[in-house]
Design a binder for these strands. Structure first.
Lengths: 213, 213
DNA sequence: GTCTATACTTCGATAGAC
DNA sequence: GTCTATCGAAGTATAGAC
């Protein structure tokens, strides 16, 4: 058993720079988002990449390690896209477009489910998510400061509200739901217009959507 | 093959009223929420219930059918709880308490992931979710009408916003995240106070949290 | 450094005994 | 109506050939 543990710890793996390794991560990434984490098995990943199943274990110590690599790569890619979006002249609108992209939402859904039974994935996912939120809050804050506008709500709160609503709407759309969606979209649009004018993100839950009292 | 299909269609199953069957559903329900859908295998479910694995297939044509039964039972239980909550004198607050219960959120996470690869689960989940939303909207509307208050936003929108925020906060807490949470909770609390007084759910995204301009 | 042959575990599902 | 014996497929992972 001590022997087995040593084997596990020291077992040699393929080079991280290998093109084969990269193609395995790509295959796993595609399977995860299109068919869910249960589809990410060594056989299916290899088949997807046109390789033998055993190669997965040559490049990754376990399937969890492969999943962790998929998470890492996907988040790095996402961070670049987010940073670019946040440089927009309309950061709230850009953030909304970013957050309503359905593929990243599918990733988050799968990894959230995985996180409940895997501490490493949970910590990595939480770490990236908090970094993303901080980036978003900072961008909103800077946008307002540059225009001399006093925020009506804390920028970090605008980030929470916008992203939670965007994510929910995307997930529900994928399920085929629609109740309340057009009202939500009208609210968001109204919010964006006000925000661009005055930095007031209020109307996301605001009173002006339905009509007056 | 036609033979196999006939076998599939006509194969006899255990009685729906069987106590054994019920205990299998209970075991699957527990495994799903505590360990994720990948843990819901015939062997593990049976082991959890103290039964033989083959019994799962005697009572359910497939594992998907078992999952569908878990979904159905869980939603029926949830509907009762929701209906009770919505009879509260403070329906928004009661809805928040209902929606921040972490076990149902874990269920939804698992079933949302499952839904992307199983049409029956997707349709059943969407159907229940839309019914729940309609119930919520109706309760809010009725609450306001009885007090002669004109809603500031469509009741269905209040339901969307509240539940999406609640669900997001619970999921993030499970991950160990906290950025922006206390701001969100303060906002919600502020919203509840206003709503009880005037039916104005505005401040969920409102301007009064951080301070004035 | 790269890949294959192979071990052994667990899965879903059915056929048939009681 | 209830449960068991059993099968073939698919899963992870390692040891060793090139």
């Amino acid at each position: 058993m001590a022997q087995a543990e040593k084997t596990w710890a020291t077992r040699k793996l393929g080079a991280e720079t290998s093109a084969t390794r990269t193609s395995l991560v790509t295959a796993a990434q595609r399977l995860l988002v299109d068919e869910g984490y249960a589809a990410v098995t060594s056989r299916r990943v290899a088949s997807e990449a046109g390789l033998k199943p055993q190669l997965v274990h040559y490049y990754f110590r376990s399937m969890d390690d492969l999943l962790l690599e998929v998470l890492h790569r996907t988040c790095e890619e996402g961070e670049e896209r987010l940073a670019a979006a946040l440089e927009s002249d309309e950061p709230l609108r850009a953030l909304w477009d970013y957050a309503t992209d359905c593929r990243p939402v599918a990733f988050t859904t799968e990894f959230t489910a995985l996180a409940s039974r895997n501490a490493k994935i949970r910590d990595e996912l939480a770490s990236y998510a908090e970094r993303f939120r901080a980036m978003q809050a900072k961008a909103i804050e800077r946008h307002l400061a540059m225009r001399g506008i006093v925020p009506q709500i804390p920028p970090v709160l605008a980030s929470v509200l916008l992203v939670s609503l965007a994510t929910t709407l995307v997930r529900e759309q994928e399920l085929g739901m629609s109740l309340g969606h057009k009202e939500a979209e009208a609210l968001v649009e109204d919010c964006f217009r006000r925000f661009e004018n005055s930095g007031d993100a209020t109307p996301i839950f605001g009173g002006s959507v339905l009509g007056e009292t």
